[in-house]
């Protein structure tokens, strides 16, 4: 018996590990509450200071580079002009960024005031570790009142929902991820459908053939599904295809949010943290 076990040890070990890994994955798929496990919390807590440290270091390097290093050559030409030039240039360089930040934050603030729910602003710190999924990490977590399932929005519309939380960070599943689905409707004619992510865009599914959907129609959240409040913008219809047969038409939607430039987001809290 032991000889047999010894002979097939590698096979048994491999089979045991695969079975355990499959069971763990399957168990996590079926969990509906508290999906963030101990390992995830631990790793996120270890990585959080390093990530914020990196942000600070990069900001400092960028600051040193922008304000000093690239002006070293001109200093030899004229010290007085260079000093003034440096000051003016530094101010000028920071103005567009300040203006853009101001605009973004003002839009977010206006949007926040329109919402009935309490909105918590957060900063996007990292993207998904692979190029195959569409998730981002934000710099607020359960200590700020964030829970799994909460909607995440920006001024332009819906960004995603929280899928993992640790005390100081949370992960957001963007609406463009292939595993994301939102109950939506066409604003003009109230046709209902499900908006699913396709990596870069969205598809509006279960729209009946006879329903009148046109390019440019705005898609908004329907409020069904219990995650997103009703009426939040999702995007606009960019392609409609009706085949000769079949119950449904194929509708493509361009997201209202530019996910390549996602910097600040609002997490819609259910109650005051």
């Amino acid at each position: 018996m032991f000889d047999l076990l010894r002979k097939y040890r590698p096979v048994l070990l491999a089979a045991g590990m695969v079975l355990a890994a499959l069971l763990l994955y399957s168990h996590n798929l079926r969990r509906t509450e508290e999906r963030t496990n101990i390992l995830e919390r631990l790793v996120l807590q270890i990585m959080a200071p390093a990530q914020s440290g990196l942000e600070t270091v990069l900001d400092r390097i960028a600051g040193i580079w922008d304000r000093y290093l690239w002006l070293v050559d001109t200093e030899a030409d004229n010290l007085r002009l260079n000093k003034e030039n440096r000051r003016l240039h530094s101010e000028l360089a920071s103005l567009p960024e300040l203006r853009l930040t101001n605009e973004r934050l003002r839009k977010l603030l206006d949007f926040r005031e329109q919402q009935a729910l309490v909105a918590l602003p957060a900063q996007v710190i990292t993207e998904d570790a692979t190029s195959w999924f569409r998730t981002v990490m934000i710099d607020k977590g359960s200590e700020a009142g964030i829970r799994e399932g909460m909607p995440v929005v920006v001024a332009e519309g819906v960004a995603g929902r929280i899928i993992r939380t640790s005390p100081h960070q949370a992960r957001v599943l963007l609406i463009t991820d292939a595993s994301s689905a939102i109950a939506t409707l066409i604003q003009r004619n109230r046709s209902r459908g499900i908006c699913r992510g396709s990596g870069t865009g969205l598809t509006f599914e279960f729209a009946l053939r006879e329903e009148d959907i046109e390019i440019g129609d705005q898609v908004i959240t329907s409020g069904n599904g219990g995650v997103f409040p009703k009426g939040l913008p999702i995007g606009a219809v960019v392609r409609v295809e009706r085949e000769e047969y079949g119950m449904f038409q194929q509708v493509e939607v361009a997201p209202a949010v530019d996910f390549s430039r996602l910097e600040e987001v609002l997490v819609l809290l259910e109650e005051n943290p």
């Binding site: 763990l24 998904d128 570790a129 195959w132 993992r164």
Partner: peptide
């Protein structure tokens, strides 16, 4: 290592864990 990647990638924990294990095997 797969579990570590799971923390920062995808939406369901365990997917990269089993994938990396199978690749190793």
């Amino acid at each position: 290592l797969g579990a570590l990647e799971d923390v920062f990638a995808g939406s369901d924990f365990g997917l990269f864990g089993i994938t990396f294990l199978l690749i190793f095997l």
